[in-house]
């Protein structure tokens, strides 16, 4: 069981991610739905993994990603856009595509948490 930070701007989708994560036997942290609270949580909260929506109400969540990279906490991006616009350090981060396949979420958490 891992503590998983959920950063997602849309209420319905955030609720679903919470359910998916809970169903997988993990403990959701959040959801954080705007950049500032997400950044504060990424800096302060204690968690093992994060699912990070790239677009937070029109703002990109890359500062949160940078914080997670700095803290060495594994994470995946979530997006409806696909890989477009992901470069540099972010290019190697897996992307979870919307709508979500819980099996894929489980596999991504497992492989990223194992340090892959």
């Amino acid at each position: 069981m891992a503590r998983i930070l959920i950063v997602e701007d849309e209420a319905l989708i955030a609720m679903m991610l919470e359910d998916i994560v809970t169903d997988l036997g993990h403990d959701p942290v959040g959801p954080m739905m705007r950049l500032q609270p997400a950044l504060a949580a990424a800096e302060r909260e204690d968690f093992d993994f994060a699912i990070l929506d790239i677009n937070l109400a029109g703002q990109q969540s890359f500062p949160v990603a940078d914080c997670l990279i700095r803290r060495g906490i594994p994470f995946i991006f979530a997006s409806g856009y696909g890989r477009a616009g992901l470069a540099g350090d972010y290019a190697r981060i897996p992307i979870l595509q919307k709508p979500y396949d819980p099996g894929q979420v489980a596999a991504m958490i497992a492989s990223r948490a194992a340090g892959a």
């Binding site: 849309e10 319905l12 989708i13 609720m15 679903m16 359910d19 677009n55 997006s79 409806g80 856009y81 696909g82 595509q97 919307k98 709508p99 979500y100």
Partner: peptide, 17 residues
């Protein structure tokens, strides 16, 4: 495409919950 995917995810959420 983004909106369609987001809307599908929203519908997925409604149905699941």
């Amino acid at each position: 495409n983004h909106r369609v995917k987001n809307t599908l995810a929203a519908v997925q959420s409604i149905v699941g919950q």
